[in-house]
Design a binder for these strands. Structure first.
Lengths: 241, 241
DNA sequence: TCACATTTGTCCGTATGTATC
DNA sequence: AGATACATACGGACAAATGTG
C-alpha cells in the first residue's frame, strides 16, 4: 500500500550520481564555482559526498557532456570548470538533424531564412574590426585555393563568424549545427578545388557588398550563394545513403 | 586560443566509453536500432564489446543524457532506445539561460526568423486537411478556455503543427526545441487563463488570415504574437535562478 | 501474498595509462 | 629519468528495484 504522500514525491527515484551532478551544477550556477576553477579529484569528491568513485565518475560524465566541466588526466589534472554549454546544444541539434536524416534541400531552405536574418543583424552592427576578421577569413581561403587546396574549413567558418557577429547566441548555436551537417555532407565528397574556389568568390562578393553598405545586394548574393551550394551537392544526394 | 569551430577538432585521445557510446550511437543513426528496441543488458554489452561493465555504464550515461536511450531497472529492464533529444536540448537551453549565456530576447529573435519562414512555407502548401487540423487545435484550446482552464499545451502544439506543415525537418526540430523551452518557462508561471485566452485569440486570428489568403496579415499577426509572448516572459528572466 | 530471477545501482580493490614536476 | 598524482579501466560483490510465477 502506497502512502498518499508518495503521490507528491518525485516520480522517479533519482539516482545518486544525478544528485551529485546536481549539487555541483548548482554550485556552478550559483557562481560559487567559476570557469577555470578546479574541482577536487574523483577520490576526494567521493569522500566529500560519501559515495563511491564510480558514482562520482558517472556524475562527472553528466557534467562533462552537459558542457559544465572538462576532465584532465595526470598530475595537477582533474575536473575543471569550463563552460561549453552552447557547443553542446549545437552538438545535440546535429544529432537531431542526423536522426531525422535532413536533406540538403531542407537544410538550404532553413539556411535561406536563417542566414538572411543573421546577415541583417550582422550588417547592422558590424564593426571595422569584425569586417577585417571576415576579410581575413576570405584571404586565408584564397591562400588555400592558390595552393591548389580546398578551403572547406575556412568557408564554413565564414558563416560561423557571421553568426557570431549577429550578436545573438541562439543564431550561433543553430548556425554551427547547420554548418556541421553541411561539413558532414562535404566530408564525403571528393575534394574539388574549383567548387571551393567559387564558394570563396561568393563570400568575397558578399563581403564587398557589406563593406559597400549595399544591404540588398548582400542579401541577394547570400541567397544565390546558398542555392548554388545546394544545386552543387544535389547530384550526390542519392549516393550518400 | 580556441578555434571558433570544432568541426575539424584535433584528434583527441578518445576514451573507451566514448568509443562504445559512438558505436551504439552509429547503430541508432544508421537505423539498425530503432526507437522501442531494447539494448542488451550492461553485462551482456560488456562482454560483447570486451570491456568492463563500468565502462559500459559510462557509455550509457552519455547516450542517456544525449537523448538516445532511457534506462529501466528490474526484470525485463535495461537500456531502451528512445528519442528524447529535443527534451535534452531544451534542458540545456534552460541551463544556458541560468548561466546567462542566452537571453529570452535572443530566443525570440531566432523564433521570429524561423516562424516567419515556417509560416510562409506552410501558407504556400497548406491543404484543406491541414487547415482543418489547425482549426481543430484552436477549437480545443477554446474549449479549455471556456472551461476556465489554461490551454498551454494546445497553444504550443499550434506552432508545432505549423512547423510540421512546412514539410521541413529542420524547421520542426528547431521550432519544437524552442517551444519546449517556452513550455518549461510557462510551466513555472502561475496559470493565467486570461493570458492563455489571448494567445488562443492570436492563433485564431492568424489562422483566419491564412484561410482568407492574406499572407502579409498572417505574417504581421505572427510577429506581433511572438513579441507579446516575449514581453510576458521578460520579468521571468531575473527570477530563474 | 510470497518467493525468485533479472537488471540496474552502488561500492571496493587493484592495475594501468598519462601528464607534470 | 624517476616520482607523483590523477583519470581510466577491470573484476567482484552486494543492494535495490521490478516484473513473473
Amino acid at each position: 500500500m502506497k502512502e498518499p504522500s508518495d503521490l507528491f514525491e518525485t516520480i522517479r527515484d533519482r539516482r545518486v550520481f544525478e544528485k551529485v551532478s546536481d549539487r555541483i551544477k548548482t554550485l556552478i550556477l550559483d557562481g560559487e564555482l567559476k570557469a577555470g576553477d578546479k574541482l577536487p579529484s574523483e577520490t576526494a569528491l567521493a569522500q566529500q559526498f560519501n559515495v563511491g568513485r564510480q558514482t562520482v565518475r558517472e556524475a562527472l560524465r553528466l557534467l562533462e557532456i552537459s558542457g559544465f566541466i572538462t576532465v584532465q588526466r595526470g598530475t595537477g589534472g582533474g575536473p575543471l570548470i569550463m563552460d561549453t554549454i552552447l557547443n553542446r546544444i549545437s552538438d545535440l541539434y546535429l544529432d537531431a538533424f542526423r536522426m531525422k536524416k535532413v536533406t540538403m534541400t531542407e537544410l538550404t531552405a532553413a539556411r535561406q531564412a536563417f542566414e538572411r536574418t543573421i546577415l541583417l543583424h550582422a550588417y547592422d552592427h558590424m564593426s571595422e574590426n569584425e569586417l577585417n576578421t571576415l576579410q581575413d577569413n576570405v584571404q586565408k581561403a584564397k591562400a588555400q585555393i592558390a595552393g591548389n587546396r580546398v578551403a572547406t574549413e575556412e568557408n564554413i567558418q565564414f558563416h560561423s563568424l557571421l553568426a557570431r557577429m549577429s550578436g545573438n547566441h541562439v543564431f550561433v548555436i543553430v548556425a554551427e549545427s547547420m554548418m556541421a551537417v553541411l561539413g558532414d555532407f562535404l566530408s564525403r565528397l571528393a575534394p574539388d578545388v574549383r567548387t571551393s574556389a567559387r564558394v570563396v568568390e561568393d563570400h568575397e562578393a558578399i563581403l564587398k557588398a557589406i563593406a559597400g553598405r549595399d544591404r540588398e545586394k548582400a542579401l541577394l548574393l547570400m541567397q544565390r550563394h546558398l542555392l548554388e551550394v545546394e544545386t552543387r551537392l544535389q547530384p550526390f544526394r542519392e549516393e550518400i545513403a
